[in-house]
């Protein structure tokens, strides 16, 4: 059993929870390799994917995970909905739940939105990304993919590169990797690294070459221009010059490191094609593992249901 009723953030999970999710994901990964990639565990469950922010990968991945568990799925995206007519978050979700939905997967632009919702409704909530706070399933699938590639995470060196300031992936990754005993460095231009981030137990490195030389795995993040309301570096070209990961840089290192990226990729900015498409990159393994990890999370949260959903 997980120690939590919702998956809001990695911060609230303990090491046993993460271990249990990984173990369950191993089983689902095996299911996904069969001809019939489906099990009927959740045939009596309905899941709503409520996306107040754009998403391709995460929404598709959740939807596939739900369908492969046999659940019924409804999708909601904020654009073109009653949200633009002024409906509040709680009202929107309560209306969805009134249609007898058992579980909500939510992405929202406001940090903390899933916690707020968890206080007001009874269904299980899975955070699919809230503002610049957490993206727990991404961190789980990242750590799962790393573990698959380099073994037990204890003592492994992981560098997270790029827009740390605006990245929920970075924060969830830091919590998750710390809990698994890995050592984490964040790297990027000083304007994109939040002050006092060392208090989370990570090292800070402003020199990309040094950061890469130190690590076993580099998780390269996207520059989130949509969240940068004031200029934090001069041009994308300048960013690419100093912090873009390219082949030349990787070849100059003393060992082969593993390259990851949560997507979507800005090719030629934070990562070059000759890196993203190389054999060192496990970007597509991450996507593949994402479905298994999400199946595990949904399955583990779907246990003993509240007899009465307070709507």
């Amino acid at each position: 059993m997980l120690s939590v009723k919702h998956l809001l953030g990695i911060k609230e999970l303990n090491t046993e929870d993460i271990g249990l999710i990984f173990k369950t994901a191993d089983n689902f990964k095996q299911v996904l390799q069969r001809t019939i990639k489906k099990v009927p565990s959740l045939r009596d469950t309905t899941v709503a994917n409520v996306f107040f922010e754009n998403s391709t990968r995460t929404r598709l991945s959740f939807e596939l995970a739900e369908k492969r568990l046999g659940a019924d799925v409804v999708n909601f995206s904020a654009s073109g909905s009653s949200v633009s007519k002024g409906e509040t978050l709680i009202d929107t979700v309560k209306n969805i739940l009134a249609m007898k939905v058992d579980m909500v997967v939510m992405r929202h632009a406001a940090s903390g939105a899933p916690w707020f919702l968890a206080n007001h409704i009874n269904a299980s909530i899975i955070n699919a990304g809230d503002g610049t706070n957490e993206h727990p399933t991404q961190a789980l699938l990242d750590a799962y993919s790393m573990r698959e590639k380099v073994g037990d995470m204890k003592g492994k060196h992981i560098t997270i590169i790029g827009d740390i300031m605006h990245s929920r992936v970075a924060l969830s990754n830091i919590y998750c990797l710390n809990k698994l005993g890995a050592k984490v460095t964040v790297a990027g231009p000083p304007t994109l690294i939040p002050k006092h981030i060392e208090s989370l137990g990570v090292r800070v490195e402003y020199n990309l070459k040094k950061a890469l030389e130190w690590c076993d795995v580099a998780n390269v993040l996207r520059i989130q221009l949509e969240r940068q309301h004031k200029p934090l570096f001069s041009t994308l070209r300048e960013y690419a010059l100093y912090y873009g990961v390219n082949r030349e840089m990787l070849d100059s290192l003393s060992k082969d490191i593993v390259i990851m990226h949560p997507g979507p990729i800005n090719r030629g900015v934070e990562i070059n094609s000759d890196v993203a498409d190389s054999r060192q990159s496990i970007i597509l393994d991450q996507v593949e593992n994402g479905v298994a990890i999400r199946m595990a999370v949904i399955y583990l949260l779907s246990g003993k249901r509240e007899s009465e959903l307070a709507v």
Partner: peptide
Amino acid sequence: FYRDDVHTSEIHV
């Protein structure tokens, strides 16, 4: 994953 009591008993690993 094929049990018929996912929602009535504790979750099984």
